[in-house]
């Protein structure tokens, strides 16, 4: 989906365009944003810088050699708004590497949002989180799903059934069912595979 690994077969249609062979950085321009399973942020920059950089990515080309980017309001102000959306505004001036694991995930979502996506691809945003932290993320996502499409890859059933409008169940890389949550709960094949190692897509 994100273009890091080429697909073996099939094609990916996104918003009416075939993006199968499109390089990673252009997928972002199409409106596809992702978070990573392992926290993937700029550890040596401040939280604010992290998001500002994501804003900058979609504010035209970056061949500006002279003006101080950390004083440009058109980058800094949206960045702090996105941080506020995920509840990290009081962490803006901390170096990102010092934040907790849960905060890293929140930062990831803020960065993904800053790229102004039509669809947000979240790869296990709750991985390795305590129940309290993942509750915070669920809350954030509940607000977000009204504004844009979210593709969530998640193992945690409670989270999936709380958030999802449509669920696809994958077993060994194959989709065995796609339906609304209530129907999925009753699906025989899903119940059969229920105790195995499967992922849920919402």
């Amino acid at each position: 989906m994100t273009g890091e690994i080429e697909s073996d077969s099939g094609s990916i249609l996104f918003d009416g365009n075939n993006i199968s062979g499109v390089p990673v950085h252009l997928r972002s321009a199409h409106g596809l944003a992702r978070s990573f399973q392992i926290s993937n942020i700029f550890h040596d920059m401040t939280t604010w810088d992290n998001v500002a950089l994501a804003v900058q990515a979609h504010a035209g080309h970056s061949f500006h050699f002279w003006k101080n980017a950390s004083q440009e309001q058109e980058l800094r102000r949206p960045a702090i708004e996105f941080l506020a959306m995920v509840g990290l505004e009081n962490r803006a001036k901390f170096v990102a590497g010092q934040l907790s694991h849960g905060e890293h995930r929140q930062l990831e979502i803020a960065m993904a949002l800053a790229t102004n996506p039509k669809m947000l691809l979240l790869d296990e945003p709750m991985a390795g989180m305590g129940p309290k932290e993942s509750q915070a993320i669920v809350k954030i996502l509940q607000n977000l799903k009204r504004k844009l499409t979210i593709l969530l890859i998640e193992h945690d059933m409670d989270v999936v059934f709380t958030l999802a409008d449509r669920i696809t169940v994958l077993v060994n890389g194959r989709g065995i069912a796609t339906d609304i949550p209530d129907a999925i709960k009753k699906n025989q094949k899903v119940i059969a595979a229920y105790l195995g190692e499967e992922s849920y897509h919402a």
Binding site: E4, L26, N40, F42, M45, A57, A112, T115
Partner: peptide, 16 residues
């Protein structure tokens, strides 16, 4: 500097 810090991430947020 972003590319030094995390090149994969830079691409994912849309930088060539």
């Amino acid at each position: 500097r972003g590319a030094k810090s995390n090149e994969q991430r830079m691409r994912a947020i849309g930088f060539p």
